[in-house]
């Protein structure tokens, strides 16, 4: 079944999946274990027959989606779960949860304030991140933090809507993007540059 033929021809450059190396093996094991965990929790039975059916359907799903993964959607797309540094990622998630709770309390206090103490602004900036997955994680973290919302990502340029200056401070001073860089790459360098903050509807830049 050639599912990749149904997809739009965005990038004709393709991954070579016929070679069996360490990356493809890790990717296969990771996807298979994730699908099996999903199956076992949803079914709730632990006997051989149900586990066997689960393994069979997980293999069918992996075989079907193997052809979809050969298509590039972004220029800097890397199809490798091995790029994620898991010890950093495990430290990153609790830090993000604390940030979410802190800024949720801030946003809630702004909403129930009788005068609604908000100061909406548009922020655009460029990032220097190694892959499309890193940008996806950064964009999702920005959106998950109350008070900031990723409106668009074009190439390495982010467009973010923020509810008040307190909420976008974590992005502009480079603390959140540096944590994301730490998850994906061992090197440490400034990520955010070319920051522009707009408070007026008339001076909106071309987005």
């Amino acid at each position: 079944m050639r599912l990749d033929l149904l997809l739009p021809p965005l990038q004709c450059e393709r991954f070579n999946h016929s070679i069996v190396n360490r990356d493809t093996a890790v990717r296969f094991v990771f996807s298979f274990v994730a699908l099996m965990v999903f199956w076992v929790v949803l079914s709730g039975f632990f006997d051989a027959m149900h586990i066997g059916f689960g393994a069979l359907s997980a293999l069918i799903v992996l075989a079907t989606f193997n052809s979809i993964r050969t298509v590039h959607f972004f220029e800097d797309q890397r199809d490798a779960i091995t790029a994620v540094r898991f010890h950093k990622f495990i430290a990153y998630v609790p830090w993000l949860i604390v940030e979410i709770v802190k800024s949720a309390i801030h946003v809630a206090s702004m909403i129930i304030h009788p005068k609604m103490d908000i100061e909406p602004s548009m922020i655009t900036f460029r990032v220097d991140l190694p892959s499309a997955h890193a940008k996806m994680v950064l964009g999702n973290s920005i959106t998950l933090t109350p008070g900031t919302l990723t409106v668009d990502i074009k190439g390495d340029r982010f467009v973010v809507h923020a509810l008040s200056p307190t909420t976008y401070a974590g992005i502009v001073d480079d603390s959140l993007p540096r944590k994301v860089l730490g998850v994906f790459s061992p090197e440490d360098h400034p990520v955010v540059h070319d920051v522009s903050i707009t408070h007026s509807n008339r001076h909106l830049p071309n987005l």
Binding site: P114, K115, M116, D117, I118, E119, P120, S121, M122, G139, N140, T143, L144, L149, T150, V151, D152, V159, H161, T198, H199, S200, N201, L204, L207
Partner: peptide, 29 residues
């Protein structure tokens, strides 16, 4: 949830809905 809200905001931005931006002193509540 964040992906859904991002998709909605991007659709609004693509169809040209302008955000209402202001400074604190221009806002009377």
């Amino acid at each position: 949830n964040p992906i859904g809200s991002h998709a909605l905001a991007r659709a609004a931005m693509d169809s040209g809905l302008k955000p209402l931006l202001f400074r604190k002193e221009e806002w009377d509540g």
